[in-house]
Structure formats: C-alpha cells, structure tokens
Write a protein that binds this DNA or RNA. Structure first.
Lengths: 213, 213
DNA sequence: TTGTGTACTGACCGAACGGTCGGTTAGTAT
DNA sequence: ATACTAACCGACCGTTCGGTCAGTACACAA
C-alpha cells in the first residue's frame, strides 16, 4: 500500500490522533480532570499506546502546551503591522489578535488556564511566552505613538498596552459567563467590540469639550 | 475546662477550621487537585469528621463558593456611591472594587477559577452572581453619566462597564504572570494603576487637539 | 446512673487513577 | 524465509481517591 498523505488528517490515527484528542479534552476540562483512559478512548486507541508515544501524562500535556504556544506566537508573527497612523496600526493589531484567540479557542483556553490557574512552574513559563509576545508588540506601538506626538506622553505605555490585552483576553474568557447576561449587548460580535474598545481607549468616554469640569 | 472563645479563631477547630482549610487549598490548587485527606490534615482533624459536617466533597466546595460570593457581594453593597461627578463616582467604585478583590484574594481566586475554567453548571451560576452585580452597578453609572451629558452618548454603556471590569479582574489574575515581566512597571501599586486606567477611559490616549487627524 | 445527641476517629471499601507487563500484528530490509 | 522494529493491545499492578462503618469521648439532661 502506498503512502497516502492525501487523506484528510481529521481523526487521524497514531500520534496525531492522540494529540488532537488530548488537546480537546485538556482544553475543556483541565489537566487533572482528564484521564489517560479518556484520551485513549477519544483517540480510538489504547492506553499503552499513548505511553508508547509519550513518556507520561505530563510530557503529553506539555507537548500540547508547547504546540499551542508555538501556533499562537506564529499567528502573532504573521500579524504584520498595518499601514497608517499608529492608532490605526494599534487598532488593527488588537483586532487581529482577538480574531486569532477566538479562532483557536482550544489552544487559547489551554494557555490561559495554565497561565492563570496553573500550579506547575513549567506550565506558567510556557504560557508566559505568548503573553509577553503580545505585550511587547503593543508597548512598542504605544511608545511609537507617544514619540510621534500622536499619544499623550504622560501615560505609562505598558499600562495602555495592558488595557488592550485585558479587554481582549477577558472578552474571550468571560464569554460563557457574559453571553446570557441581559445587560450585555455587544457579545458575539468581536469586530465591533474591538472597534468601540479602541475608540474609548483613544478618544475617551468623556464628551468632547467637557474634559475639565 | 471553660469555653474559651477569647482565643483567636485562627486555625479554629471544628466546622470553621475545616472551612478555612478547604478554602485555602481549593483557592490555591482547584477542586480536583485537593483531596479530602489533605483538607483533614490541614484542618487538624480526620477525614470522617469532615463527612460528619458536610455531605460530600461537592457540598463542601459549594459551601465555600457560596460564602465567598456572599462576602464579595456584601463588600460590593457596602461600597456606597461617593459624591461628586459621575466620573468621580465611577473611578471610586472601580478603585474600591479592585481593593476588595485584592484584599480577599483567596475568595476571588476561587470565584474566578470557577467562573472561567469551571466545568460544573452550578459553580458557574454561583460565580455569575458576583460578576453581574459589579456589572449592573457600573452600567447604571455609565448610563447616568450619559443622560447627564457627562459621557458620550454614542458608546454602548455595557461595553464601557465591561472595560472597567476587565482591567480590574485581569489585573488581579494576571499579577503572578506579569510581575516578573520587565516591561511592566505599574504592577504592585493598585491605586495608581486604577487612577491611570480611569484616566485613559475618561480622557483617552490621544493627545488633546489631535483626535481627528 | 442512665440515656441521648454531637463531635470525632482508625480501619476499611470499591473504584479509578497513572503506569507497566508480556505479547501480537504488520510492514520492511536483508 | 528471517530478523528487526514501530505500533499497538488486554490484563494487570500499586496507589490514591471519595466515601463508609463501627465505635469512642464527652457534654448535658432526666
């Protein structure tokens, strides 16, 4: 039988199938709540076969974590700076980043769970890579805007960057909680959400000409 | 021996001691990673005694969850509206809320973990109570500011409220990840953090007189 | 003294866990 | 044909889990 890589790799057997099944389960329930038997069952294989491909549960988990971070940072690198004013570039970058995390929700959930609720040193370190990557890009943009006189110089650029990251990340992770809150009307439309958020961050909430009462 | 309640209730025996020990462990490691034996050991009692006071592990967990949410909402109710302009009241409320969650970090961690990473329907419902409480207070404030002409009327008030909640919550939960990031300089000082955040939200990032290039 | 309820415990249970064992299949190079 | 190897599996192991049981210690009321 010839080597057929033309077949779709959905529900692929072997190592790929194990990785996919494990990623889905770990993202949904977290490390402790997922058993190796459950992974084996979802991957349509046996538990010993998982141990044939991976040293132990931790190694399997970290393999998935590292792949998730890799994919996330790759997407970030592919997000090239758009042309135009700094504020336009900043808004576009923010929108692209939000799009990325919504598109790859499983990876994102995995990373964020480990970053904020994780107990292992190693997991936190891995997760930190991605956060700091988004962060330094944003800080550089804000600083650029400041040196060009486009942004106020009296604002800590890392704090402005933090606000953008916060709203995006929190939008993602609070979605299940917020979406059946009757007071929330913006949920479900990420692009308009991002447009208004950047509008507020750039122009402020206060009515123009009323900033110093 | 007389009943001596004059002793400090730190490491109190009985039901209180169990609750305190369980809260500390659950907040730190999460539901699955904490065993009843570990709780018993920390509470200086035996495992069967826990089952004498609580039906099972779930009931113990939810008892702590509900107490945490109760305490959080009580603190929120005690945060009365300050006098002054709407923007002043909004800034004060935000600062007070951030103070609360930082002061009761164990309760907050517990609630947020369940809200955003939890798997049980019940846990999410319990956690939702607190989030929506903060949220509706903020939305009402923003709407008031809009009807008074203090805030722009073209902004979705729930989205402005969401930004404030996001930055506060995310500040809390990302603290361990952010605080050893060399680009972050504001970490560790919650009140100035809040001051600048509200400044940005009210006045915007853009240099005055440069809002429409 | 005898009852009664509450707080508490050591010893134990079945189930599920992470992980291992010996062995089987199938492709492949010699 | 033979030898080797990666992929895979049923059955099993030691340990730990949540939870139970029979019983003890002690307060207080009758």
């Amino acid at each position: 039988m010839q080597n057929h890589q033309d077949k779709p790799l959905i529900n692929a057997g072997g190592e790929q199938g194990i990785l996919q099944a494990a990623e889905a389960l770990f993202a949904e329930k977290g490390f402790d709540a997922v058993s190796m038997s459950a992974i084996a069952k979802l991957a349509n294989t046996s538990k010993p076969n998982i141990y044939h491909h991976f040293k132990n549960k931790n190694e399997l988990y970290f393999a998935i974590m590292e792949a998730a971070v890799q994919r996330a940072t790759d997407l970030l690198d592919a997000l090239e700076d758009s042309p135009g004013t700094i504020r336009q570039r900043l808004a576009d970058f923010s929108a692209g980043q939000l799009e990325n995390i919504l598109l790859h929700d499983r990876s994102t959930q995995l990373i964020m769970r480990e970053a904020f609720s994780g107990t292992s040193e190693r997991g936190r370190d891995i997760a930190k890579q991605m956060v700091s990557k988004v962060f330094s890009r944003l800080v550089a943009m804000v600083q650029q805007g400041q040196s060009k006189g486009e942004f106020r110089a009296d604002i800590d650029p890392s704090l402005a960057a933090f606000m953008i990251v916060s709203t995006n990340m929190f939008y993602f992770q609070s979605k299940p909680v917020m979406e059946d809150n009757p007071e929330i009307t913006f949920s479900g439309d990420a692009s308009t959400f991002n447009r208004i958020v950047t509008d507020i961050i750039f122009n402020g909430l206060i009515t123009q000409g009323n900033s110093a009462p």
